[in-house]
Structure formats: structure tokens, C-alpha cells
């Protein structure tokens, strides 16, 4: 969970920076938000499939590590 939390925190700050750069490029707030989202919204079906797989592993891998760690902790006690 910690890894997912860190990743989400990084995303928040990174996209805030990108948003800030768009504002400096003299876009207004609405256009700046659209500028961040549009490139992702217009991707084709193959890319959406790929993106879905990536995002699935984004959450699944840290959870799997967590599960493995808990399992390893339990073992010596048994």
C-alpha cells in the first residue's frame, strides 16, 4: 500500500508541475487541464488495452509484494 501511496503522491506533484508549465505557456486553467487529459483521451483501442494492462500491474504488483511479505512473516511462527 505504501508503494501505491508514494506513486499517487508523485503523480499528483508531477501533473501539477505539467499543469503549471501549461499555465506559463499562457493557456487558461480549462485549456491546461484539457491539454493534460486530451493526449490520453484520444489514444486508440490497442493503446487502451496496453494502458489497461499497465495500470492493472501498477496496482497488482505492490499488492502482490505486500501479500508475499505478510506470508513470509507468518511462516516462522507456524
Amino acid at each position: 500500500m505504501k508503494i501505491i501511496g508514494i506513486a499517487l503522491l508523485i503523480s499528483l506533484f508531477l501533473f501539477a508541475l505539467i499543469f503549471g508549465m501549461d499555465l506559463l505557456l499562457k493557456f487558461d486553467v480549462k485549456t491546461s487541464i484539457a491539454a493534460i487529459l486530451t493526449p490520453i483521451q484520444i489514444i486508440g483501442p490497442v493503446e487502451i488495452g496496453l494502458l489497461t494492462i499497465f495500470i492493472f500491474f501498477f496496482f497488482a504488483l505492490p499488492l502482490f509484494h505486500e501479500y508475499k511479505k505478510k506470508k513470509n512473516k507468518k511462516k516462522p511462527a507456524e
Binding site: 508503494i3 493526449p39 490520453i40 505492490p62
Partner: peptide, 24 residues
């Protein structure tokens, strides 16, 4: 984070997504 390698994949996906969103 005790195992920094665990951060690599999630951060890689964030970099990938932001590389697309960074500019029109």
C-alpha cells in the same frame, strides 16, 4: 522503502503517462 526496486514499475508507468500528457 526497503526494496527500491519495488518503486521502479509504478514510477515507470507514471513517467510513461506524463510523457504523453506533457505537451500537445
Amino acid at each position: 522503502v526497503k526494496e527500491p526496486s519495488q518503486l521502479i514499475y509504478p514510477m515507470g508507468i507514471i513517467i510513461l503517462l506524463s510523457s504523453i500528457s506533457i505537451a500537445g
